[in-house]
Design a protein around this nucleic acid. Structure first.
Length: 421
RNA sequence: GGAGAAUUCGCCUAGUGGCCUAUGGCGCGCGCUUGGAAAGCGCGUUGGGUGAAAGCCCUCGGGGGUUCGAAUCCCCCAUUCUCCGCCA
């Protein structure tokens, strides 16, 4: 949720942001009007309530013969209070309804435009040149017995798969390496619930435009999370956290579930886009003034991971029109996928400023002792999808796959994944 | 799934319709005392909303209700604990 103070002091800044996103500017005017109406109704109600409180106190100490009259007056007042309260509540609800529709205020230096208007910040690494016909990850996964897509479909349908043998171990190795890196950087490991309550899912901003991406269990009124970000953000909901020693950071590991409802026919081959995968996610709670610096730190840690996996990549700054509703800025890191001759997203990091924390009521104590809304940021450190880039970029002429040196300690020291016997 | 108990300020706790503007302790902060400390003594210590301010309003797990008036009575929900049942 946006800051109500900003709405009162500088609604034009919010309008500019909505415009950059291609979202409704009219909502901002509606919010300003609803805010005024609510505050007026609130004052009316509170004045009546104050009168009721003081009068009802007189009853106890009044002389016996005066009591009936005082109680009768109180009865009339109680009815007025009740209707004034209902009015104030209705106005507040109306305001909230509008506020929840306004998206996070975009940081001004974010590129303008839509999906194709990202800005490439940097390209790193060398794209492999193969002297042989490169295989895609599906072919490699089959011949090396790492990925079983056919049986995944038999058990669970399309976009499901088994990871097998060194394929399964490679994923665990990647997750463990990422977790070690995160722990060294001061992140606390957290294995999170993957089923969450509606208010948590709504609080993190996932029930807006992308609601049809989410698995829902009606019998239990629970949502399956598409990222541990949901649980990591909910972790400190309704709390006042201590940021006096700097950012509070968690590395969340979880299985992630996505319906991929809007992507029929897209990326149907292999494990690039699947309904279930594993992910190690970084999540930071910081003071708002530290959010942009933390965003750069998250991006730097992500780049370290890509480099450790020896993958060619580029970093892009996502344009305003392509940002999720909670993000004020988002960087994606895309790895080169040789057989597709294109870059594909491996990580994403968003600065949600105070937007998510305000919805989830996450505060911290400032130096002066006062409380303020914290800022939250998230970023991918590893996912199952990384196997695609690792297998394809490190394949060799004989059909084997070279294991990047940094991963070897996590894979029993092997240097190459090759066909058995 | 069934039965019972509980939920009050960071922690523990008092509190059965108006004197609750919520008690006491621990912890924490400030001060006094001291050569310095401990002990002792005094003061402070949940959050939120609204208002230019004084102030006012809300907050006893959450939501409704009864009442002139609710931490207290009633209903629903959540969570925790105990016992029973079930269990890959």
């Amino acid at each position: 949720m946006i800051d109500p103070n900003l709405l009162r002091e500088n609604p034009d800044a919010i309008k500019a942001s909505q415009k950059a996103r291609g979202a409704s500017e009219a909502l901002v005017d509606q919010a300003v009007a609803a805010d005024k109406a609510w505050r007026k109704a609130l004052v009316d109600f509170e004045n009546l309530r104050a009168e009721q409180n003081s009068k009802s106190k007189l009853v106890a100490s009044a002389a016996k013969e005066d009591k009936p009259a005082l109680i009768a007056a109180g009865q009339a007042l109680a009815a007025q209070v009740k209707s004034a309260e209902a009015q104030a509540n209705a106005e507040e609800e109306q305001l909230q309804k509008i506020l929840w529709q306004i998206e996070n205020v975009v940081i001004p230096s974010v590129p303008v435009g839509g999906e194709d208007d990202f800005v490439v910040i940097r390209e790193e690494g060398t794209k492999p040149q193969f002297a042989f016909k490169a295989q895609d990850h599906v072919a490699l996964g089959e011949s090396l017995d790492l990925i079983d897509i056919e049986r995944g479909a038999k058990i669970s349908g399309s976009r499901f798969y088994f990871l097998k043998g060194w394929g399964a171990r490679l994923e665990l190795a990647l997750m463990n390496m990422a977790l070690d890196k995160a722990a060294n950087a001061g992140f606390t490991a957290l294995i999170t619930p993957t089923l969450v309550k509606p208010e948590v899912m709504a609080g993190t901003g996932f029930l807006g435009a992308h609601a049809d991406e989410i698995y829902y269990l009606p019998a239990d009124d629970l949502y399956l999370t598409g990222t541990s970000e949901v649980a990591l953000a909910g972790y400190h909901s309704n709390e006042i956290i201590d940021l006096s020693n700097g950012p509070v950071r968690y590395a969340g590991w979880s299985t992630c579930y996505r319906r991929e409802a809007g992507s029929h026919g897209k990326d149907t081959r292999g494990i690039l886009r699947v309904h279930q995968f594993n992910k190690l996610e970084m999540f930071s709670y910081v003071a708002p003034e530290d959010a942009e610096a933390e965003h750069e730190r998250l991006r730097a840690w992500q780049e370290e991971m890509l480099k450790a996996c020896e993958l060619p990549y580029r970093v892009i700054d996502i344009a305003a029109g392509d940002l999720g509703s909670s993000a004020a800025r988002k960087y994606d890191i895309e790895a080169w996928v040789p057989t597709q001759e294109t870059y594909r997203e491996l990580t994403s990091t968003s600065n949600c400023t105070t937007f998510q924390a305000r919805r989830l009521n996450i505060r911290y104590r400032k130096q002066d002792g006062k409380t303020a809304t914290a800022a939250t940021l998230n970023g991918t450190l590893a996912t199952t999808r990384w196997l695609v880039a690792i297998l394809e970029n490190h394949q060799q002429a004989d059909g084997s796959v070279r294991v990047p040196a940094a991963l070897r300690p996590y894979l029993g020291g092997i240097e190459v994944i090759e066909q058995k016997g």
